[in-house]
Design a binder for these strands. Sequence first.
DNA 1: GTGGTCTAGACCACG
DNA 2: GTGGTCTAGACCACA
Lengths: 130, 130, 130, 130
Amino acid sequence: MFLQIQFESEIPIYQQIKNQIIRGIALGELELGEDLPSVRQLAADIGINFHTVNKVYNQLKQEGWVVIHRKSGVMVNPDLKPEKTPEYMESLEELLKITTAEAYLRGLEKKEFIALIEKNYESYKSQEGE
Amino acid sequence: MFLQIQFESEIPIYQQIKNQIIRGIALGELELGEDLPSVRQLAADIGINFHTVNKVYNQLKQEGWVVIHRKSGVMVNPDLKPEKTPEYMESLEELLKITTAEAYLRGLEKKEFIALIEKNYESYKSQEGE
Amino acid sequence: MFLQIQFESEIPIYQQIKNQIIRGIALGELELGEDLPSVRQLAADIGINFHTVNKVYNQLKQEGWVVIHRKSGVMVNPDLKPEKTPEYMESLEELLKITTAEAYLRGLEKKEFIALIEKNYESYKSQEGE
Amino acid sequence: MFLQIQFESEIPIYQQIKNQIIRGIALGELELGEDLPSVRQLAADIGINFHTVNKVYNQLKQEGWVVIHRKSGVMVNPDLKPEKTPEYMESLEELLKITTAEAYLRGLEKKEFIALIEKNYESYKSQEGE
DNA sequence: GTGGTCTAGACCACG
DNA sequence: GTGGTCTAGACCACA
């Protein structure tokens, strides 16, 4: 498994896992319809309690990233179609407000910031052969 | 005061205040050397516990955004020069990893994302007459 | 066979099968006395474990919907006469309590709700030439 | 508190609590903006573990029924506006398919079924003075 | 005081 | 063997 958890981080473990799974989908490391480890398996791999993984999978299911088959376990939602909802856009804009403000004050040029965005986007695009 | 607090938000109140003060500086709404309200004043204005405001000011001081004079209160650091430290850059890159991943999956084009960044940066630049 | 199973559903597979068989009887798609597929046949058709089908048939038998002959297999109970028991009525009322409450809060008018009921009832009645 | 839990029921405790809170809102027993007991308080009142209540509140928040203030606890969403989404309508229709089928086969007349619906709806309407 | 996170272990439903 | 539920208790962040 490609998950890398920082136990000393302030970011909750379950949040780190969620982030990395979503990023894994964007990067193409996780394909649509691909099986994810069982809650207990993943928990054992990472060395955490299975309830923590359970919480992750349930939230990912709630948000539509994965589907939970009744017995075969959890897989990346094969019909993944997350939407650019107004709520999402609002929260993104709110996040960027403070992020860019601090970046600007710290002397990060607009060009540098955009370069970071582009670097990330390229890594996603490359998955599609574009 | 220009602070707008969302009590139902996931973001802690103290974090919201910090964010808005930093953004206020970037926007030029708060000038370098400008006095901030006293702890009790701000707490009363927002309707929160003054310990929360105290925490905010102490963290802002520690991070170099404000200076606290024993009697004259708190002011925006007149010699503000926050740095683009490696630690900061690392945390920013980490944040953008997950942020762009979700944005990409939700169908937000790179151009759209960058437009959001530029919109923000323009609002800061305009303060300098550029 | 007319069974359509959703493996990602919250509803257990065995429950889905039961539901569809009972609905099939109400719709007249399954006639009284009609033979049902064998346990192994149905399991193979759907692609599930035959223990699951076994469980379904046994529960349906216990509730009086089908009869099981040792060799000739399973058939819809030719003398079907399920009753409007107090227990059933109680559980139905309990179900409708929460169902109508949410429907009401979501803005579903009483007329709309009743229209849904009537639409269903009509499809059963039509089987009797009414 | 008006909650009545059946510990011997097959319906999970957390589900029963959810149901009764939503029904409480529909009945007007819970007003919009009204405070709900704290997780630990409600858990103690019912005599269950606080994690179970926590799960309820989080799901209710996720579905928009309540808001969780950072310190003042949980309250019924004052801006409650659950929607008649296509997903909801689909699941409701699916539920009514099997429910009406069994009711019909058990000899419950359409009129009787509708009477049950009306009885419930009246109890909600009466809250509005209509 | 509030909710949030994580651990730990038990038992159950499902297939 | 899978996820789901519930209990229990610890510690933390927040206000």
